[in-house]
C-alpha cells in the first residue's frame, strides 16, 4: 500500500516517513502542499493520505474537502496531523470526512494505532 505524506515542512515529512518505515510502511510518497498532493493522487493510487493541517496556500482541511468532493478520490482514507488540538478543528475535520486525527508531537505507536484503526489492520 502506498501512503502519501503531505506537509509543507520537509523536516516533518522526513520524520513521518521515517516513523512509517519503523512501523513497516516503506512505500511512502511525499507532497509539499495540497495542490501537489491532489496532482499526485490523480496520477497514482494511494491507500492512505497523512496530511498536516497548517499549510499554505491550501490547508489540510481544504485538501480533505477537495478529496472528498472528487468521486475518483473520495474513498481514500485520510489522517489529519496537527499541532493544534482545538475542539472546533477536530469537529471541522470530522465533518469534512477525516478518518482520524493525530496531534503533534506523536510517537510511532500512536501513528501505528491510528493507521490500523483507519485501515482496519
Amino acid at each position: 500500500m502506498k501512503i502519501l505524506v503531505v506537509d509543507d515542512y520537509a523536516t516533518m515529512r522526513r520524520i513521518v516517513r521515517n516513523l512509517l518505515s519503523q512501523i513497516g510502511y516503506t512505500d511512502v510518497d511525499e507532497a509539499g502542499d495540497g495542490v501537489t498532493a491532489l496532482q499526485k493522487m490523480r496520477e497514482a493510487k494511494y491507500g492512505l493520505v497523512i496530511s498536516d493541517w497548517n499549510m499554505e496556500p491550501m490547508t489540510g482541511l481544504q485538501l480533505l474537502k477537495e478529496i472528498r468532493a472528487d468521486v475518483k478520490l473520495n474513498a481514500t482514507p485520510f489522517i489529519m496531523v496537527t499541532a493544534e488540538s482545538k475542539t472546533e478543528n477536530v469537529i471541522a475535520a470530522k465533518q469534512a470526512g477525516v478518518n482520524n486525527y493525530i496531534v503533534k508531537p506523536f510517537n510511532a505507536e500512536t501513528l501505528k494505532m491510528k493507521i490500523h484503526a483507519v485501515l482496519g489492520g
Binding site: Y9, T11, M12, I15, N18, L19, Q22, N54, A83, K104, P105, F106, N107, A108
Partner: peptide, 21 residues
Amino acid sequence: LTEVVTGIYEACNFQDVTGQR
C-alpha cells in the same frame, strides 16, 4: 538499535512543534 532510532525520530517532532510556536 531500531528502538532507539525510533525514539529519536519521535523526539524530532519537537522541531515542527516549536517551529510553529
